[in-house]
Nucleic acid binder design. Sequence first.
DNA 1: CGGTATCCTCCTCGATACTG
DNA 2: CAGTATCGAGGAGGATACCG
Lengths: 135, 135
Amino acid sequence: METTSSDVIAPTDKDRECETLDPRVEALVTELIGRVADKWTMILLEVFEEHGQLRFTQVARHVPDISQKMLTQTLRRMERDGMITRHVHAVVPPRVDYALTPLGSSLSEAFCGVWMWAAANLERVEHAREAFDAR
Amino acid sequence: METTSSDVIAPTDKDRECETLDPRVEALVTELIGRVADKWTMILLEVFEEHGQLRFTQVARHVPDISQKMLTQTLRRMERDGMITRHVHAVVPPRVDYALTPLGSSLSEAFCGVWMWAAANLERVEHAREAFDAR
DNA sequence: CGGTATCCTCCTCGATACTG
DNA sequence: CAGTATCGAGGAGGATACCG
């Protein structure tokens, strides 16, 4: 955790790292995160990051626990937010392709840190819970 | 992070960056993120990161919109998960101090990327929504 | 195939009141 | 000061049925 003396980059104080300054920005960011950080959105980001372009049913197959309703709803919201593109082919039977936009891809990367944290600290959290519940 | 020449392990492709391998781990991580990524938790992490140790009412003052119920609930859950410590002083009137643990601090850092993404891409998302709604 | 529409059920969250 | 207890409204999300 200690900062090496050779750390020439960014003389920012270690404590300021992540401060949001403008309260308006903070409010909007909070709202945005609220929309974007839900379970299904995060999972779909991962799925697209991993598999690229996918049809509706293909997405469903990669997320077995999701209901059709939530899948449609989440895809629609992600499309509205500019995270994914939706391409409808005029054929029968219908075919709809979804794919990440650069914006969606960048969000996926941003979440990467949280995923890695969660993977790295799972046991620590579980231990903490056990210790807490034991009391 | 630098790979020594003796590091024979798979030079990870840039695209694999964030893959979670074990599906069990993925499930647990998803659950953990679901618990940890809610609005108030994220905001409280930020508040503690910025102000250090705080009393109950001080926390409340930094998050005006939160109800007392949600504040208590969120603090309790964060304590259970090992994110914060809770120290009760045996005095009247009661005094309870909360502070981030290293674990909580590390999560705060992990979320930093998402905050920065949100701050950086707010306008892009808003534009995307307007374009979508215009149709 | 890729959706909508409808109903129904939890479960979160806020408001209010009370307490050591 | 720092909570707990209780109630009630609202929305998220699942199950089911139907449609272009």
